[in-house]
Structure formats: structure tokens, C-alpha cells
């Protein structure tokens, strides 16, 4: 993306007041209590165990730790996790898949 294009996009976001996940490829994370977690716009699973789940994003890595984590379903870029969720850590710079 060119600089002008990026600025244009930033400007339209500011003018139209659109949510960031629609225009920029950012994940939308929905957490319901500590039981269910919905992540949209991820870029694949990096690690998966019952204690930890690492997901790749367009920029960075999302680390989810907890107990008894289960991927309830995974479809394209959507993912639902259930279990007891303890931490969600967002790492801006990480290894990309």
C-alpha cells in the first residue's frame, strides 16, 4: 500500500467513523466472561494446547492462556474458543507464519 493510499484510508476512516476491523485487517475479539472467546480476522493457529493458544494476526501474535481450551469451531478466519480463559496477550511484533 502506498503512503498516499494509507493516508487516504486513514482519512476516510476518520470521516466516515467506520470500525477499524472492517477497513484495516485487524482482529475483532469478543470475550464472553472467561468462558467463550470469538476471534475474527486471524491468520492461522501457531500453537494449540489445552493451556495455551497462539494465533497469528496480520500484525503480531495473540496469545491466549487458560485451562481446558477447546476450539469449538474454526471456519476460515473465524475461530471460537471455549474453556476457562485466563489471559489474552497481544504481541505487536512477533514471528509471522
Amino acid at each position: 500500500m502506498t503512503r498516499i493510499g494509507r493516508r487516504l484510508r486513514g482519512w476516510t476512516n476518520g470521516i466516515l467513523d467506520l470500525p477499524q476491523d472492517v477497513l484495516q485487517e485487524m482482529p475483532r475479539i469478543t470475550l464472553i466472561g472467561n468462558k467463550e472467546l470469538y476471534i475474527e480476522n486471524h491468520r492461522g493457529v501457531l500453537h494449540f494446547s489445552s493451556e495455551q493458544l497462539r494465533l497469528a494476526l496480520t500484525q503480531g501474535v495473540l496469545e491466549i492462556s487458560g485451562e481446558g481450551l477447546v476450539i469449538r469451531n474454526i471456519l476460515g478466519q473465524e475461530l471460537a474458543v471455549i474453556g476457562v480463559i485466563g489471559e489474552i496477550r497481544y504481541k505487536e511484533s512477533g514471528e509471522n507464519p
Partner: peptide, 17 residues
């Protein structure tokens, strides 16, 4: 493997270690 499956558009659910 999970990434490949989702990439191929195959639905999987109840993935547990």
C-alpha cells in the same frame, strides 16, 4: 494441519488437544 484444513474451506469443530 489445522490451518491447512481451514484454508481449504473444510469446517472442523470441537478441536481439543
Amino acid at each position: 494441519f489445522i490451518n491447512a484444513v481451514t484454508g481449504a474451506g473444510i469446517i472442523i469443530w470441537d478441536v481439543r488437544p
